[in-house]
Design a protein around this nucleic acid. Structure first.
Lengths: 195, 195
DNA sequence: TCACCATCGTTTGATCGACAAACTAGTTTT
DNA sequence: AAAACTAGTTTGTCGATCAAACGATGGTGA
């Protein structure tokens, strides 16, 4: 840990700005992001989470609920009624994978993609406000760096799920209009559109 | 479904990468930061929060609890027993401001500063792991950008506290070894060293 | 000076969300 | 076919967050 880095400019304590607290900075930015996005997305069933799910589902192959939960750092049990509510409003759809009838592939409906477009605009507007302290190129730079760091650290999560190999299934014309079955009846008590 | 949109044209103003989800990236990085810091700081009374408090208190003028709470985005009521526990271990100290006997200025003890040094090392080590996806200069850049964005958006919090003018008091030799009085007795039920 | 209001810190209470465990359905292994 | 395993759902518990009430102190205006 002697850190023989050729960076003598960084002294451990003598820095005039020892407040380079990564945790604090990230917490502040994320907190404000969350606040404002929640406010801007009050109509979406679960606010920012609904947005994340919708965005994750709207590109590429329909992921399974487990894959979604892992990617979005949401517990499986939470994902269940999150999707329940999104499905109830017709934004996403659960379809049983014909190749493995245990898993449910979540895909966005046309309406969902439509809604996502507008929502994304609002979110981007919020993000510009949140990153107002940076000029435009710095904003882009910051986004890129954050993304790179996130992807890398997400892949390097050893304890959780070792192999999240995405099955290359689906894409065929197998129909399953029978729906998900949706065995259970109602959700927990006040699990409405939140709030 | 989504395969019918082969991404024909990229608008220059919009994000070139559709997955430039700032919220997601920040959430992932912060989550991992939090996980690992909590693990590394299991001996500190409140983990990462204890660290934040200790770091914020160890530089400049001793802030009031309210200022501390505002800066660290912690509720005042939480700050109370957070400081209770830190004080119980002798890391910080509450002193009634003689100029305004309502406020309590929190300052780090010698032991607190000593502990902070070691803790800071551990945290920096964790941060290097969390930002392992970026090379060293990118890491520094990212930290700087995050800090700038955080400071700016923190200052631009309209609804909360309009003027958080830091009083230029204290600094004189006014002694108040009488302590805080600490009217209350014990904390809530299991508020031990957490966990 | 004395009521009146604002602020700081503490305490209490209610509510919300995260997490773990049990359970069912379906698949893979032996 | 039985056992073991995985995906998703349901339920229950625990902890944290937030709002409100309270006591103490300071400032303000009649």
């Amino acid at each position: 840990m002697a850190s023989t880095t050729p960076e003598p400019a960084r002294l451990p304590d003598a820095g005039p700005d020892p407040d380079t607290n990564l945790g604090w900075s990230l917490a502040v930015v994320l907190r404000r992001w969350h606040e404002r996005v929640e406010a801007a997305l009050a109509d979406l069933p679960h606010g920012s989470r609904g947005y994340h799910v919708l965005a994750a589902v709207s590109r590429g192959e329909p992921p399974t609920q487990a894959a979604l939960a892992e990617r979005l750092l949401i517990d499986r049990s939470v994902m269940t009624y999150l999707l329940d509510d999104l499905e109830a409003v017709g934004l996403v759809r659960r379809r049983i994978d014909p190749h493995d009838r245990r898993v449910r592939r979540v895909c966005a409906t046309g309406h969902g993609r439509e809604v996502l477009a507008g929502v994304r605009e609002r979110v981007e507007h919020v993000e510009e406000q949140v990153l107002a302290g940076l000029d435009a190129p710095s904003r882009e730079l910051f986004r890129g760096l954050a993304q790179r760091a996130a992807v890398a650290v997400q892949e390097a999560s050893p304890a959780t799920d070792p192999c999240a190999a995405v099955r290359q299934v689906v894409g065929d014309g197998a129909e399953d209009p029978g729906g998900t079955g949706s065995r259970g009846g109602r959700r927990r008590t006040g699990r409405g559109t939140r709030n």
